[in-house]
Amino acid sequence: NITNLCPFDEVFNATRFASVYAWNRKRISNCVADYSVLYNLAPFFTFKCYGVSPTKLNDLCFTNVYADSFVIRGDEVRQIAPGQTGNIADYNYKLPDDFTGCVIAWNSNKLDSKVSGNYNYLYRLFRKSNLKPFERDISTEIYQAGNKPCNGVAGFNCYFPLRSYSFRPTYGVGHQPYRVVVLSFELLHAPATVCGPKKST
């Protein structure tokens, strides 16, 4: 009989979030998941669920729940959905087409922007091929755009693959930082360890 609440607040209220290319994953298990708490945590810009209804979450049980978190800019949030393409979905964080879970995003301009520009958040701009779903690539190998090998040196047709967002508070919403948490629900042929409040007794 599990009584402890799932530590969603640790994920959502973390002081620092990860850069999207090096997104963070927390496995959540053996706890009571009260998803209604999430609705009250922040004024969400996005709370979209796929393959599951957000209002039914509190009635369900899962084997595992994974919470992935990272920062992107406002106009990239739409890429965090099944079947999307674009720089983020292709080279940084890719959801599977049959994704079961929820994408939660909110504006973090007050936390993640600086007047002089916050350069701490990076994204991958160049990659030889698209990522597979939930693949994480943290390599910093020089990207070869031409025929000549780069031998690890940046220059003509040889690019450092990561680029930094420079978040400034005066930017338009599309270029402001957004914190994203992706909850993916895993149903294996194994005992369910993460249940809503109704199912945990």
Rank of each mutant, 00 (worst) to 15 (best):
I72A: 04
Y91C: 05
I72P: 01
G86F: 01
T15E: 13
P161L: 04
D59H: 13
F185M: 13
E135F: 05
T100K: 13
Y121E: 00
Y165N: 01
C61L: 07
P133L: 03
V173E: 12
F45P: 15
A81L: 04
N1G: 13
R25P: 00
G146W: 05
F99A: 01
T193P: 12
K128C: 08
L162K: 03
I2E: 14
R124Y: 01
I138V: 14
S116Q: 15
N1Y: 10
N64W: 12
D59E: 15
T170S: 07
T85N: 12
T170N: 06
L57D: 10
N4G: 13
N157F: 03
W106F: 08
F167P: 00
N24Y: 09
L183A: 03
P54W: 15
V115K: 14
D75F: 08
V115R: 12
C49G: 02
L57W: 09
N24G: 09
G174W: 06
Y21I: 04
C158T: 01
K110G: 10
K198D: 14
H175C: 02
Y171I: 01
K199N: 13
K114D: 08
T100L: 15
V77Y: 04
A33G: 10
K199M: 14
G74Y: 03
V65M: 14
F12W: 07
P82M: 03
G152Y: 07
Y39S: 15
G51C: 05
E141M: 10
V182H: 01
V11E: 05
Y91L: 08
Y159R: 02
F160Y: 14
A89W: 02
P96D: 06
S129P: 11
A105D: 03
I80N: 00
N30D: 11
L5T: 13
W23S: 03
G83R: 13
T3A: 11
Y159W: 05
G83L: 10
V11M: 08
N58L: 08
A67I: 10
D137V: 04
G172Y: 01
G196A: 12
L57G: 09
T63K: 14
P191D: 14
S200D: 14
V103C: 01
P197G: 14
N64G: 10
Q79I: 03
S166F: 04
V194D: 11
K110D: 10
P191L: 08
Y123S: 13
T140I: 09
Y50V: 04
V20G: 02
T55P: 10
N92S: 04
Y119T: 09
V180S: 02
Y66S: 08
I88F: 03
C49D: 00
P43C: 06
V181H: 03
R16F: 12
R73C: 04
N109Y: 04
